[in-house]
Nucleic acid binder design. Structure first.
Length: 486
RNA sequence: GACCCCAUCGUCUAGAGGCCUAGGACGUCACCCUUUCACGGUGAAGACCCGGGUUCGAAUCCCGGUGGGGUCACCA
């Protein structure tokens, strides 16, 4: 295979979301797998909807995801410009050539006329189709009206019969009836290109070899194919990957289910987990693998294992994958990742001292297997990082309001004052005290957990106390004793 | 509505005519581990959309239905 060049061509509108990331990812994986180039092109043709700063937003998204484009805005590979709006000269030139060759023609119909016609078609149950009014115009009339400054669009002179086959790398051959294609618009009256036209000109000029995009574009492909024919250029290969659907099976949209990446970031998802999940949504390397890194994916990716049917995305599974990656982080790494979430909640200062950092790390490790996201981790860590304020109501009833509760807590505080503060030492001390008092260990353990954390659930008590340290432990026990029943 | 795509547990999927008594994972439910909660372990429930063919044999091939999705712009 010749040098593979793929492109990801988002419009600058809105936030990068889950579908955005999946399409970018598949393109990147394909490029890597074949030693090719992954190009980013921003389709900002529609200036009305252009959003300033899109490039920075995209770069931030790529940086978070952990992979990025080889060529694109600010990363010239000799096939620029990478902003579609900057290729306007080419769009006009090619449109002019098509006009000169008689493969396209100016159309002076007004939008109102077209719309009326379309409404009529719909009413009669006919496929809406441009009737070809301006097809018949003589060269003289065209020249005259164009020179006269009458507004016009440029339409492709599309073939009227026959069929065209898309050789799709995921779906196989898909045939379309050309009689159903009308003379679609190439250049709008304002002199800017339409999507199908700009996209084709750009792909051709950028020497794109494979177009991997979402399934929703499959129906556009015959238009693009006849455009390549009209331009006398070889079309790239196409591969339409299945769409990602919202949990209710509806198409993802800004308003519906297309969760922005920024939100996953804010919710404390790890990018490697999101990427792992996305990679396996609509593709799999065969077998039972659930965990895959970008590097592994880049070695294994192949279009013939891309699914044909759309995939509903399910946050539960992504959360599970996230929890898996979270548990695998070492203490230092965990701290690095969690720190922003801790400082955002004022659980550690912006510039923690060595002691504060060490304590936070120990707490994080303690909570690591009990959280699925960094947000959950921070919330779990808060229990030990701050003084307990609220105590679990049922726990209070059971452990603080039982007869002798205060006495047990005080006795425990007294005993732990002089205990060795590691898990083994604490266990020995508590076991011994329970024996002396003639109560089950649990009679001390449960009230103690509630006393130091305010919760009835959490890490093993001995580990928790050893992390908490003597001072905090004893203080919290005494405070709890004060409010418990004697 | 027309055109196109698709169809395996609730979800993601394995499955390329006999290996399928349809496998795995998430989720759900039990049990084990245990000082609680997680983690981990074990197990259970849970699917080939329907109907016709083809074949000795079909989840796998063909046809038809049904269902879901997409596209039908001077949006991208």
């Amino acid at each position: 295979m010749a040098m593979v060049r793929v492109r990801f061509a988002p419009s600058p509108t809105g936030q990068p979301h889950i579908g955005w990331a999946r399409t970018a990812l598949f393109n990147w994986l394909f490029a890597r797998r074949h030693g090719g180039t992954f190009v980013l092109r921003i389709e900002d043709t529609d200036q009305k909807r252009a959003v300033a700063g899109a490039r920075e937003v995209f770069d931030a998204a790529f940086q978070w995801l952990g992979f990025t484009y080889d060529e694109g805005p600010g990363r010239d590979g000799g096939y620029g410009p990478y902003l579609q709006s900057q290729r306007i000269e080419s769009h006009r030139r090619v449109a002019g050539e098509l006009l000169d060759q008689g493969r396209a023609y100016p159309c002076f119909c007004t939008p109102e006329e077209i719309e009326a016609r379309r409404a009529e078609d719909r009413r009669l149950g006919r496929p809406p189709r441009y009737p070809g009014t301006c097809r018949q115009l003589s060269q003289e009339e065209r020249r005259r009206r164009m020179a006269g400054g009458e507004p016009y669009v440029i339409r492709l002179l599309a073939p009227e019969e026959g069929s065209i086959v898309v050789h799709d790398l995921v779906r196989g051959d898909v045939s379309f009836d050309l009689a159903l294609l009308d003379d679609f618009v190439l250049m709008k009256a304002d002199g800017t290109p339409t999507y199908n036209f700009a996209s084709v000109v750009d792909d051709a000029e950028m020497a794109i070899t494979h177009v991997l995009r979402a399934d929703e574009h499959l129906a556009n492909t015959p238009k693009q194919l006849i455009l390549y024919q009209a331009m006398g250029r070889t079309a790239p290969a196409f591969a339409h990957v299945p769409m990602i659907l919202a949990p209710d099976r509806a198409k993802l949209s800004k308003r519906h289910g297309a969760t922005p990446l920024a939100e996953f970031m804010a919710q404390g998802y790890l990018p490697e987990a999101v990427v792992n999940y996305l990679m396996l949504l609509g593709w799999n390397p065969g077998g039972d693998r659930e965990f895959l890194t970008l590097t592994e994916g880049a070695q294994l990716f192949s279009l013939d294992r891309v699914q044909k049917n759309p995939a509903v995305y399910d946050t539960q599974k992504m959360t599970w994958i996230n929890a898996h990656y979270l548990r695998q982080l070492g203490e230092e790494e965990l701290w690095q990742r969690a720190q922003p979430f801790l400082t955002a909640r004022d659980l550690v200062p912006d510039q923690p001292s060595a002691d504060q950092a060490a304590y936070a790390k120990a707490v994080l490790s303690l909570m690591q297997s009990r959280a699925s996201t960094l947000v959950e981790l921070a919330e779990a860590a808060a229990v030990l990082l701050t003084e307990p304020e609220e105590f679990d109501a049922q726990g209070v009833h059971r452990h603080f309001e039982s007869p002798g509760a205060a006495g047990r807590l005080t006795a425990l505080a007294d005993r732990l004052q002089g205990a060795t503060f590691d898990a083994a030492g604490l266990e020995a001390a508590i076991t011994e005290l329970a024996g002396e008092m003639g109560v089950a260990r649990a009679e001390l353990i449960h009230p103690a957990r509630l006393a130091v954390s305010g919760r009835t659930v959490g890490p093993g008590l001995f580990e928790m106390l050893s992390v908490l340290g003597r001072e905090r432990t004893v203080a919290r026990l005494r405070q709890a004793a004060a409010r418990a029943s004697s």
